[in-house]
C-alpha cells in the first residue's frame, strides 16, 4: 500500500448485463489533491463513484481507497471517507445542531468531541444565530456549505462531492470553493464532480469520462494545451461531442 495514493484503480469495470457502465478505468489520486471527475450525462460517473465509495462491488479490476480494498474492506472505506451530494446531504426537518450531532454520532465520535467540533464549525460558518433553525429553512447556499462541513466533520482522509454547487449563487459558489481549498490544505483529498467548467480550473487534475472510458486525465493547463483549447469548456466539448451513449 502506498500511503501517498488516496485512490488507486486498475482496470476497474462495472457491467450491468451486456451494458458496460464503467470500462477498465485506471487512475490514481494523491493525498491532498483536488481531483475533478468530469463527464457527460450517462458517461458512467455515478457508477464509478459508487464503486469508489464502497457502495457497489466492481465487476472486475482492482481499486483501493485510502489503502482499503473496495471488494473486502468497504466498511473501513466508509469510516475514512466523507460524502456529499447536491440531492441529499442533510435532514431538512432537523435543526443545524441536530444534524451535526447525528452525523458526528454515526461516525462514532465521542460526545465531548462532537460538542467541541460543532462549536468550532458553527463559529466558522457564522451560524450561531441559526443553529436551532431547521435546515430546511436555510437558504440553499448555507445548506450546501453546512453539508460540506458535516461531510468532513469526522476528519476523513477523502471526501466525495457530487455536484456540490449546482444552482448555488456565484458568491456562495466561490465561498464554497474557499472551503474546499481550505480542506485540501488541511490534507483532505477532494474528489469532485461539477457541471461548471470554471470550477474544473480549480482542480489540480481532471479526468474526463466518455462512454464509460476515461478519455483524458491531466492538469487543466496540460489538457488545454493538448486539445489546443482556450478554456476547459472547449476541452469538454471536444471530448464529449463524440459520446455515443447517453444515460
Amino acid at each position: 500500500m502506498n500511503s501517498q495514493k488516496m485512490i488507486s484503480t486498475r482496470d476497474l469495470t462495472k457491467t450491468f448485463g451486456d451494458f458496460v457502465a464503467v470500462n477498465n478505468i485506471t487512475f490514481d489520486v494523491r493525498q491532498g489533491e483536488i481531483f475533478g471527475f468530469l463527464g457527460a450525462n450517462g458517461a458512467g460517473k455515478t457508477t464509478a463513484m459508487r464503486m469508489l465509495c464502497g457502495l457497489s462491488i466492481p465487476t472486475s479490476g482492482e481499486a483501493t481507497i485510502a489503502g482499503y480494498d473496495v471488494y473486502k474492506e468497504t466498511e473501513k472505506i466508509k469510516q475514512n471517507i466523507g460524502y456529499m451530494s447536491q440531492k441529499f446531504s442533510l435532514y431538512e426537518d432537523l435543526t443545524v445542531a441536530e444534524n451535526i450531532r447525528f452525523f458526528g454520532g454515526i461516525y462514532g465520535l465521542k460526545n465531548g468531541e462532537i460538542k467541541a467540533r460543532s462549536r468550532e464549525l458553527i463559529n466558522a460558518l457564522d451560524l450561531n444565530d441559526q443553529k436551532d433553525l431547521l435546515v430546511g429553512s436555510l437558504p440553499l447556499g448555507w445548506k450546501q456549505k453546512l453539508a460540506f462541513s458535516v461531510a468532513i466533520f469526522h476528519h476523513p482522509k477523502l471526501v466525495f462531492l457530487d455536484e456540490p454547487t449546482g444552482g448555488v449563487d456565484p458568491v456562495t459558489r466561490r465561498q464554497f470553493w474557499d472551503m474546499i481549498n481550505q480542506a485540501s490544505e488541511d490534507g483532505i483529498t477532494i474528489f469532485v464532480t461539477t457541471h461548471y467548467m470554471d470550477e474544473a480550473e480549480y482542480c489540480d487534475r481532471i479526468s474526463m469520462m466518455v462512454d464509460g472510458y476515461i478519455r483524458a486525465l491531466d492538469s487543466p493547463a496540460q489538457l488545454k494545451k493538448q486539445y489546443n483549447a482556450e478554456s476547459m469548456d472547449e476541452v469538454f466539448y471536444e471530448l464529449a461531442r463524440g459520446a455515443k451513449r447517453t444515460e
Binding site: A40, G166, D233, F236, Y237
Partner: peptide, 10 residues
C-alpha cells in the same frame, strides 16, 4: 438546462 451536460446545453 439544469443538470444537463455542456454539450446538450449548447
Amino acid at each position: 438546462t439544469t443538470g444537463v451536460d455542456a454539450v446538450s446545453r449548447k
